[in-house]
């Protein structure tokens, strides 16, 4: 038995060491483009091509970073036409480390005027899906990641990517000439083709309490209980409240949610801007519920983020101009028309 366990332990340790070594692999820009160009994340390919081929446009620009809310909500062409040199580098899904990655690459190549990050309703959790593609494990540690479930997951994903990268290098590299064309035709704003239904639009607009989808944004103000759970037995309710409070207590340095690490990534990004004497701000881009009945509920009750005090927040006081179904792609995203209107309104604030 001892011999068996010893062998098993040695192989396991060697495997883990190997995984860690593979997670140290850096990938070429070609591979990043290859992995993202035909996906929802083609904006990554666009960003990288921009950095490699047109980095001069970033000099003196205001660069927008954040999730799909930024990608689809800020029309940089309008800003450029208004005399504000701007580039939208938003990429779908949440993760400050992705913003930090592109910020670092921007600063290597150019000298932008200002970096603007999205102010989310809640601080980000976890890691961005593309982080294993962009970071090595030691780079991730350097920017503040701690050892937790997200990190383990990250290492495992890197193993697959590194194997794939190995085979990719053996094959013929593809030519992404079409990206230059893509770069010429489009600005950084990318919208999907969704059209919000009348039913959803009216439901969200007339909502007086937090919707089931939205109430987790500030559940801590509602006794840690969802509306749908009001009918549960008292004991079940108590159990759920206790569990959520315990999770809440753990937020500062948590193993499960990676939230404090996300805050560290953003703090690192802000610090880097400051040390390079580049302006840094946050921008709040509304979601549909903000223009409905819940203005007070939403607008005053963001869960505080530790970086909120460090930077200015750009936000519009009056969002009534967005009360039109034609401006919305879905309950969380403006469409290209909404983005036009929103962008025009923020011009004076930039």
């Amino acid at each position: 038995m001892k011999r068996y366990l010893r062998d098993l332990l040695i192989i396991s340790v060697l495997t883990l060491v190997g995984c860690f070594l593979l997670s140290q692999k850096h990938y070429s820009d070609d591979f990043l483009i290859h992995k993202t160009i035909d996906t929802h994340y083609k904006k990554v390919a666009w960003n990288i091509t921009l950095l490699n081929e047109r980095s001069e446009v970033l000099n003196g620009s205001t660069v927008f970073l954040g999730s799909s809310i930024v990608q689809g909500g800020v029309n940089d062409s309008i800003l450029n036409a208004q005399g504000i040199k701007a580039v939208n580098m938003g990429v779908p899904h949440n993760g400050n480390e992705l913003g930090l990655y592109f910020q670092k690459r921007v600063l290597e190549k150019a000298n932008p005027k200002k970096i603007i990050y999205l102010k989310g309703k809640i601080p980000y959790k976890g890691l961005h899906k593309l982080t294993p593609l962009l970071y090595t494990s030691s780079e991730l540690f350097e920017i503040g990641q701690t050892f937790n479930l997200d990190y383990i997951n990250f290492v495992f994903k890197k193993v697959k990517l590194s194997l794939e990268y190995f085979f990719y290098q053996l094959g013929d590299q593809e030519d992404y000439g079409e990206l230059t064309e893509f770069l010429d035709q489009l600005n950084g704003q990318v919208n999907t083709e969704n059209v919000i239904s009348n039913v959803t639009y009216n439901d969200v607009l007339n909502q007086k309490g937090a919707s089931v989808n939205d109430e987790n944004f500030n559940l801590y103000l509602n006794g840690y209980l969802y509306q749908r759970e009001q009918q549960d037995s008292k004991n079940v309710q108590r159990l759920k409240i206790w569990k959520r409070k315990a999770v809440e207590m753990y937020f500062g340095n948590n193993f499960l949610f990676n939230q404090s690490n996300q805050e560290k990534f953003l703090a690192e990004a802000i610090e880097a801007c400051r040390s390079n004497k580049i302006g840094v701000e946050k921008l709040y881009i509304p979601i549909l519920i903000d223009v409905g009945q819940n203005k007070g509920y939403i607008r005053n009750n963001f869960r505080p983020s530790s970086t909120d005090e460090k930077v200015e927040l750009i936000q519009l006081e009056n969002l009534d101009f967005l009360r039109q179904i034609e401006y919305w792609e879905d309950r969380d995203h403006l469409n290209h028309l909404g983005a036009q209107e929103f962008t025009k309104k923020i011009v004076p604030l930039l």
Binding site: I10, I11, L14, T15, G18, C19, L22, N153, F156, K157, V159, K160, L161, S162, L163
Partner: peptide, 17 residues
């Protein structure tokens, strides 16, 4: 043989998601 096991483990770990 052990290197082979480890490569199999890498593949399994890499694709398990």
């Amino acid at each position: 043989r052990w290197a082979f096991y480890i490569i199999l483990c890498f593949c399994i770990i890499g694709f398990v998601d």
